[in-house]
Amino acid sequence: MTEPAEIRAKVQVRDLTVRFAGKETLRNLNLDIYPNERLAIIGPASSGKTTFLRCLNRLNDLQHTFSHTGRILLDGKDVYDPDVDLAGLRRRMGMVYAVPEPLPWTIYENLVFGPRLAGFRDKDDLDERVERSLKSAYLWEETKDRLHQPAHNLSGGQQQRLCLARVLALKPEVLLLDEPCSGLDPISTAKIEDALVELTESLSIILVTNNTKQASRVSDRTAFFLMGELIEVGPTQQIFTKPNHERTDAYITGQFG
């Protein structure tokens, strides 16, 4: 990447190495994420994709065996600096997990939980956030009449869209998605993918996926991870048609993984 491009990167990962109980899970990772782009991360199981995501919003901190070297800069500021407000960081980098995990409350309560913790108390503002985030997650039409019913009554696909909406209610700057469609039917998957494409108007998306087709459909750029290393990253079009690395080609064409 050229110098000017580096300056405007939203997230810069520099020489990131991650160990769990001394064992390396990520090695010497360098990667930039730009504003308003969709970056897909593909790669076989245990290649460090999820670990990478969880480094960005510092969820790995919760594991006692975790240690890392290198830097992760969000708008030029290292997220591992001691003076970083963890809760604030996690609000700026929203995360959606592979398995939908709405909290055992109503749909509305799920959506306002994050904003309330962040100090937003105004009823109108909260209602506005609920409506806007549900619309962005393509869930508004299905739920507008039953906001005060338990979230667990929703179908799996709806629950996952609720989890997406819940994160969007916090107006994050970066959206981290960890195989968000792995357990979903094609229609729900399509809805989430549509939502993601529209969302990049206001934020950056990092999408970890096991589904290479999904990566080619949704992303601007694609990164290929293997055994804890970034093999290559480039425009999705190029990665899927003529990758620089033969192992990338082998993975995409289904020769392993």
């Binding site: 919003n57 969820l59 919760l62 963890l86 809760a87 604030g88 996690r90 609000r91 929203g94 995360m95 997990y97 398995v99 995990e101 709405p102 909290l103 055992p104 939980f113 994050g114 913790l117 962040a118 989890c163 819940r166 994160v167 916090l170």
Partner: peptide
Amino acid sequence: VPRSYWQGSIALGATKWQTTHMVMLKA
């Protein structure tokens, strides 16, 4: 209590203590 409640709450910007008393104890 499902571990996912805890993870979900933390990722939404709740501290450990907020998660404990607002999510875990409630559940």
